[in-house]
């Protein structure tokens, strides 16, 4: 009991001391995911440099709790809120923030009219990087297998760009445009699909490249190609996201040659900068702010080991 009051007194003092600096709440259900962790840590570091108080709230996968926690920090009267969750699912929370005139920023969240802006990577640009890489590696001619997922808008964007770039080369033929079953994580089914494609195209050189809209199908295709004993045919595989498994594969120097790394640290610190600009009175006109991504190949894969 006594201890409770002592704790409350010290907390009250603490709150009094920090009452005059900017207070920003970061709310996400996904803090356990590495990408989110990098973003949040970079945001916290940037905010600390600006002298803000940051309250990071993780609801451990519970999206309704994100709404509740947004309502709580609105009641608390924070200066700004940053979310890392699909804005459409937390519209009730965004509405309560709007009622109280508290700005909400998306950090890799999705574009929404109720957000000041959303900071993320450009899916079109990432797909441009890997499709151009494939075109250059096969000299603008050859047979390409594509792995896409048009049901999920952020990945659908990538496929559209690859279609356009490959379509611009009359000597590039799309052997198959495969949508893998992702319920098992995407690797196993992509591998099975790739095995079928290899069986249907048994001649060495009949497949020039595999373009995958994200890393899992690329890894599945890599397994299929290696297990079929066709690793030496020079089939070029590319993915997107540069997940740790993909980085390992690129480092190993086999068929998996390239992927794209999102700059999660950059997304975090850029979000902090945008919050600062907005609170400083600037109008943010872009509904989405893109942070540049980096093509990862054998040449620079060493730079990405730590991520």
């Amino acid at each position: 009991m006594k201890r409770l009051f002592r704790l409350s007194f010290s907390l009250a003092l603490f709150i009094l001391c920090t009452a005059f600096a900017q207070t920003v709440a970061v709310v996400t259900p996904y803090l356990a995911q590495p990408g989110t962790q990098f973003m949040v840590e970079a945001f916290e570091a940037a905010a600390k440099a600006k002298g803000w108080t940051v309250n990071v709230i993780d609801t451990a996968g519970d999206v309704a709790a994100v709404i509740s926690r947004i309502e709580d920090v609105v009641t608390q009267g924070v200066d700004a809120i940053v979310i890392n969750v699909d804005p459409a699912q937390v519209a009730a929370g965004l509405a309560s923030a709007a009622d109280a005139n508290i700005p909400v920023f998306g950090m890799d969240a999705g574009t929404d009219a109720m957000l000041v802006t959303n900071v993320t990577s450009n899916g079109y640009a990432m797909a441009t990087e890997t499709s151009s890489y494939v075109v250059d590696r096969i000299g603008g001619a050859g047979r390409v297998v594509m792995f896409v997922f048009d049901a999920y808008p952020p990945v659908q964007k990538r496929g559209v760009v690859a279609d356009a770039i490959f379509g611009n080369y009359p000597d590039i033929e799309i052997v198959d445009r495969i949508t893998p079953d992702v319920s098992d994580g995407g690797i196993a089914d992509s591998r099975a699909k790739m095995e079928a494609v290899l069986a249907a195209n048994p001649d060495a050189g009949s497949i020039s490249a595999v373009w995958a809209a994200w890393d899992q199908p690329a890894l599945g295709a890599l397994q299929a190609i290696e297990d079929a004993g066709r690793g030496a045919e020079g089939i070029v595989i590319v993915g997107i996201d540069a997940n740790p498994q993909a980085l390992d594969a690129i480092r190993a120097g086999g068929n998996f040659e390239a992927s794209v790394s999102q700059d999660f640290n950059g997304i975090g610190s850029t979000t902090a900068d945008l919050v600062e600009r907005y609170l400083g009175g600037e109008t943010i006109t872009q509904a989405t702010v893109y942070v540049p991504t980096t093509l990862v190949t054998g040449a620079n894969v060493g730079d990405f080991v730590s991520q």
Binding site: L11, I15, T23, L31, T53, N55, V56, I57, D58, T59, A60, A65, S68, R69, D72, V73, T75, Q76
Partner: peptide, 13 residues
């Protein structure tokens, strides 16, 4: 508890 501790900026964990 959820509401109050969030407002007092107590770490989620």
């Amino acid at each position: 508890l959820d509401n109050g501790l969030t407002q007092m900026q107590v770490d989620s964990y």
